[in-house]
Simulated scan of single mutants.
Amino acid sequence: MHITIRLFAGLAETIGSSSLSFQATEIPLTAGKLKELLSASYPNAAPQIGASLIAIDQEYAPDDSIITASSEVALIPPVSGGENGTIYETTSDGLYSITDQPLNAEKLLDTVLDINHGASLLFIGTTREMTGEQRTTALHYEAYIPMALSKLEEIGKEVKNRWNANCAISHRIGLVGLKEASVIIAISTPHRDTCYEASRFAIERLKQTVPVWKKDINESGQHWVNSDQKASDTIHK
Rank of each mutant, 00 (worst) to 15 (best):
I3A: 00
T4K: 13
L7P: 02
F8Y: 15
G10E: 15
L11C: 02
E13S: 11
T14H: 06
G16D: 13
S18E: 12
S19C: 06
S19A: 14
S21K: 12
S21D: 13
A24L: 03
A24T: 08
T25F: 08
A31S: 15
A31H: 08
G32F: 07
G32D: 07
K33S: 12
K35Y: 05
L37W: 03
L37K: 07
N44I: 07
D57Y: 02
Q58P: 00
Q58S: 12
Y60D: 09
A61T: 07
D63M: 03
D63A: 13
D64M: 01
D64I: 04
I66G: 09
I76D: 02
S80H: 05
S80L: 04
G81F: 02
E83P: 09
E83R: 14
I87E: 13
E89N: 10
T90V: 14
S92H: 09
D93S: 11
L95G: 14
Y96C: 10
S97C: 15
T99E: 04
D100P: 00
D100F: 00
P102K: 11
L103S: 04
K107L: 12
D110A: 14
L113F: 03
L121T: 06
F123T: 06
T127A: 11
R128P: 12
M130E: 03
G132R: 12
T136N: 13
A138Y: 00
L139G: 10
A148N: 02
L149E: 10
K151S: 04
K151D: 06
L152K: 08
I155G: 07
E158W: 02
N166P: 05
N166V: 01
C167R: 07
I169G: 06
H171I: 07
R172P: 03
V176A: 04
V176S: 03
V176K: 05
G177Y: 05
A181C: 03
A181H: 05
S182A: 15
V183T: 11
V183A: 01
I184L: 01
I187T: 06
S188D: 08
S188V: 04
H191A: 08
H191V: 11
S199I: 06
S199L: 13
F201R: 14
A202T: 03
V210T: 12
P211E: 04
W213Y: 07
K214P: 10
S220M: 11
Q222D: 14
Q222E: 15
S227V: 10
S227C: 08
S232I: 06
S232A: 06
